[in-house]
């Protein structure tokens, strides 16, 4: 079973990311068994049916806006944000907005080109589930990669994981 990082630990996870190919219309719905993330277009076409199903989450492409989910967050338990390339940093703002602007308490999952050297930033921006790039890490490497979550022990600035900046958290000597 694929492994991912949830709240700092490696766990098994069987959730599927439903990706539509060119021949599939969002209107035609066929969900696999178990936990699944559907594209935004599928969610929008079927949210009346899907919003009662706690096994269904939504995933957004990096150009899609979390603002479009604002009205639906109460009926969602999980949102995944895709990194098409790890250098595409839009999802960091997306996750931060979900947590701070929209108060989303459910799972926010990083998917796509997710590499260990970005784990620290992801965690700071509010991702609680980090699903590494498929096939990138062996089980042992993923355990080792947990260290990257702790790259820096006391960051300067406020973020989702640490809502106060250092100058409010610590009494710093002049």
């Amino acid at each position: 079973m694929p492994k991912l990082i949830k709240n700092g630990s490696v766990i098994d996870d069987a959730a599927q990311i439903l990706v539509l190919d060119e021949t599939q219309a969002p209107e035609a719905l066929s969900l696999p068994e178990g936990q699944v993330f559907v594209p935004l277009a599928v969610w929008q076409a079927h949210k009346g049916v899907l919003s009662d199903n706690k096994a269904v989450g939504v995933w957004l492409e990096s150009h899609e806006s979390v603002d479009d989910l604002a009205e639906d967050l109460d009926s969602l338990s999980a949102v995944a944000l895709n990194f098409p390339k790890f250098t595409d940093g839009r999802a960091y703002s997306g996750a931060a907005l979900l947590r701070t602007r929209y108060g989303f308490k459910g799972e926010i999952r990083a998917i796509g080109d997710v590499l260990r050297d970005q784990f620290f930033f992801m965690q700071r921006c509010g991702f609680d589930v980090i699903q590494p790039k498929t096939g990138k890490y062996s089980d042992a490497q993923l355990e080792e990669a947990l260290a990257s979550l702790k790259d820096f022990s006391t960051p300067y600035q406020a973020a989702v994981d640490q809502p106060e900046p250092l100058f409010r958290r610590a009494r710093r000597a002049a």
């Binding site: 250098t87 940093g89 960091y92 703002s93 620290f120 930033f121 700071r124 960051p155 300067y156 973020a159």
Partner: peptide, 13 residues
């Protein structure tokens, strides 16, 4: 400088 150092949201602009 301190604010921008390892700012998690703006590392991949």
């Amino acid at each position: 400088r301190q604010w921008s150092t390892f700012h998690p949201e703006f590392a991949f602009l």
